[in-house]
């Protein structure tokens, strides 16, 4: 017998712990619609008052890079050390840079 899929869609949950902070992925929930998804996220992931704002995103809508692509996707940026501030030499004594 094949399992009948009626646990709802999978949604990824992002929580902002304080105003001003970045949203952080905290896990996922099952839900049948948007309202239930955000309420389930609230009921599951803020039981200890962990957050002030929540996002839920359908898991299937997330675009990701696979590991096999990772090399050309990320390692190319390793070469661009000029994007990092420590790349630049500064005269001794310069302030507020």
């Amino acid at each position: 017998m094949e399992a009948k899929e009626n646990q709802g869609e999978l949604w990824e949950v992002f929580l902002q712990s304080k105003p001003g902070q970045a949203f952080k992925h905290v896990g996922s929930v099952h839900a049948f619609d948007k309202n239930l998804a955000i309420e389930n996220a609230r009921d599951v992931y803020t039981r200890r008052g962990e957050g002030t704002a929540l996002w839920v995103v359908p898991s299937k809508e997330i675009v990701a890079v696979t590991a096999n692509e990772a090399e050309y996707f990320f390692e190319a940026a390793d070469e661009k050390i000029y994007r990092h501030p420590t790349f630049y030499s500064m005269p001794e004594g310069v302030k507020n840079m």
Partner: peptide, 9 residues
């Protein structure tokens, strides 16, 4: 309950 939630959505 799960079925009606799917239908309603």
């Amino acid at each position: 309950v799960r079925e009606t939630a799917i239908a309603s959505a």
